[in-house]
Each structure stands twice: as C-alpha cells, then as structure tokens.
C-alpha cells in the first residue's frame, strides 16, 4: 500500500479525490496496526518497567508508569548473583540449537514422505501421529522417565535432543505437511521426467520452495525449545545443568492450593529474569522474520 502512495506521486492522472482517498486509506491502515501493536506491547512494556522497581513500588496502587526507584542495574545484577544464570543460558542455547536443527531437518524429510508419497497405512499412521498431541502429558510422564532411565539418559541432555532428530514431533510434521501439500505436484513430475530422483526433488525443488515454512518451523521450534519447562525439570537433576525455563521458577513466589507458600516476594526479580530469558527469542525473531515472507510468493507458480 505504501507503494501505491508513491505511485500516486508520479501518476498525475489520478484525481485529487482519489489521492486524498488513498492517503486516508493508508492512514487508517497504519492507525489500526498501531493500536493493535500498542495493545500487544503494553504487557511487555509493563514487564520492562516492573523489572526496575522495588517490590514495594511494584505492588503500589495505582501503579507508577515509570519506576521512581529505577533500580534496573541492581535488580538485573541481583538475578545474576542470586542464581547461576549465565550457566543456564549456555545450557539452554546448547540444547535449543541441537534440538532445533534435528527437529527442523527431520520433520521436513518426514513431512515430505507423508505428503508426496502414497503408501499403505499412511493416513492411519498420520492420525496416530496427531494422536500423540492429544494425550495429556501427565500420564505418559513417568513411563517416559522410566524409558530414558533405562537408556541411562537421566541428568543428560539426550532426552531433550535425541527425540527431536526422529521426526521433530507431530506439530512440526503436520505443519510441514500442510505447506508441502500446497506446492503443486506438477513440479515433482516435471523434475522426474527430467530424471531427478525423489531425494533430489526434495532438496532442489521442495525445500527451496518451503523457505517460509522452514523459517516458521525454526522460529517456533526455537521458542518452544527455549521455553521448554517440563522436559528439563523432569529429566535433569543437577542444578548446573538446568535450563533458563526451569531456573525462572527459582524466582517465582509460589502459591499452592489457594494459600501462599513460604517465599519472599521477589516479583521484581522475576520480571528481570523473565526479560533476560525472552531477549534471545526476541532478537532471533526480529532478525529471522524476513525469511517468513521470502520464497515462492513472488515466483508466480501456476495456480
């Protein structure tokens, strides 16, 4: 739409009314986008502000919109000294990187199998695949723990990384399948006539065309792995191996069964830590998001 505005400058043919109308439309668009953005931003902004307050000021009614106490430095350094935050960040980065690579690659390959080939039992197995998303995790938690303990994998990162290399989970497979199904099959056939085998078609045609999907998968995978709480909590025992999502709980006041449980209120530190946990995801999203919209959009395949 911004381009249309530019267009009107050069194109003198348009009437004044048309130009005014266009400007009005564009302004309205920006207004809507901005209102939504502010509404979305507000809680994050509030988290930032809170992370610089004293606990007294954090609970004040009505709240202050910028901390009077401004102890950002004190709060953030307190988080670093209160818990081994740096170590946890490194652990998290490690686990996330490997789980992400495995999850993205293997789910693309598996989704290719599900979407481009017909084989007996395919649809049934796909339904079973989705079924793994439906069973509440509480009831498989302990059998899974026992399984990994038989592998001697407890208190290692294997349970958090290795399964990702085997298909990357039902969410990834389903998402990738949906995108692959959107790519016309004529492309495969054309390539096949030219003598390409299926592996080659995957790497030279399908995946390059799936860049937005892969970028989406990678981003969501990063955020998912980064914030994974239950897995690290259950499978890791040693404090120095924890990830940030588990570490965050160190700072969280706890409430159980409606009554507060012994804990010093330290929500201001929680806010600071939460922001530090979110920051890498934020940067990744900011930098990586242009890939969402690159790809076949402009290539103009047949419809």
């Amino acid at each position: 739409m911004a381009q249309q505005v530019v267009g009107t400058k050069s194109g003198q043919r348009h009437s004044r009314d048309w130009v005014v109308g266009q400007i009005g439309k564009v302004s309205l668009l920006y207004l809507i986008v901005a209102i939504g953005a502010i509404a979305s931003m507000f809680p994050f902004f509030w988290t930032v502000v809170s992370s610089g307050k004293t606990i007294s000021e954090l609970y004040r009614y009505p709240p202050t919109f910028w901390p009077e106490s401004t102890q950002f430095v004190k709060n953030y350094s307190e988080v670093w000294s209160a818990v081994p935050f740096g170590r946890w960040l490194l652990n998290t980065a490690w686990v996330t990187t490997w789980a992400l690579i495995g999850g993205t690659l293997s789910s693309a390959i598996v989704a290719y199998g599900f979407s481009r080939f017909r084989f007996p039992g395919r649809d049934l197995f796909f339904v079973i695949t989705l079924g793994t998303l439906m069973l509440p995790v509480e009831v498989t938690l302990i059998p899974t723990y026992l399984l990994f303990s038989k592998f001697n994998w407890i208190d290692t990162y294997y349970p958090l990384i290795v399964p990702a290399w085997f298909g990357g989970g039902a969410f990834n497979i389903f998402l990738m399948r949906q995108f692959l199904l959107g790519i016309p099959y004529d492309l495969d056939e054309a390539a096949r006539i030219d003598g390409a085998n299926s592996w080659r078609i995957l790497w030279q045609i399908i995946l390059p065309l799936s860049k937005p999907a892969l970028a989406t998968l990678a981003t969501l995978g990063f955020i998912g792995n980064w914030n994974n709480f239950l897995g690290p909590l259950i499978f890791l025992n040693t404090e120095s191996k924890y990830t940030v999502a588990v570490g965050l709980r160190y700072l969280q006041s706890t409430f159980a069964g409606g009554s507060a449980v012994v804990s010093r209120p330290q929500d201001h530190l929680l806010m600071a830590a939460a922001l530090m946990v979110a920051l890498p995801c934020l940067i990744l999203f900011f930098v990586g998001q242009r890939y969402f919209v690159e790809g076949i959009a402009t290539t103009g395949l047949k419809g």
Binding site: S106, S107, I109, V110, Y112, G113, F114, R116, F117, R118, F119, P120, R122, F125, I128, T129, T132, L135, V139, T140, P143, T144, L147, P163, W165, F166, G167, I173, S198, L202
Partner: peptide, 28 residues
C-alpha cells in the same frame, strides 16, 4: 517404489515413534 520411498522418508519418525513414544503411550 513410491511406497518404499515414502516409508523410507517417514522412517525417522516411525523409528522415533516406536522407540520414544509408543512405549509410554501403551503403558498409559
């Protein structure tokens, strides 16, 4: 051939499912 290829591409997940998921699922 198509079926074999399809199963081959799907096999990482088939193996992953059998090794990591099927057991706990059936146990529950």
């Amino acid at each position: 051939r198509e079926a074999i290829e399809g199963i081959l591409y799907t096999s990482p997940w088939i193996i992953g499912f059998l090794v990591f998921i099927a057991g706990p699922l059936l146990a529950s």
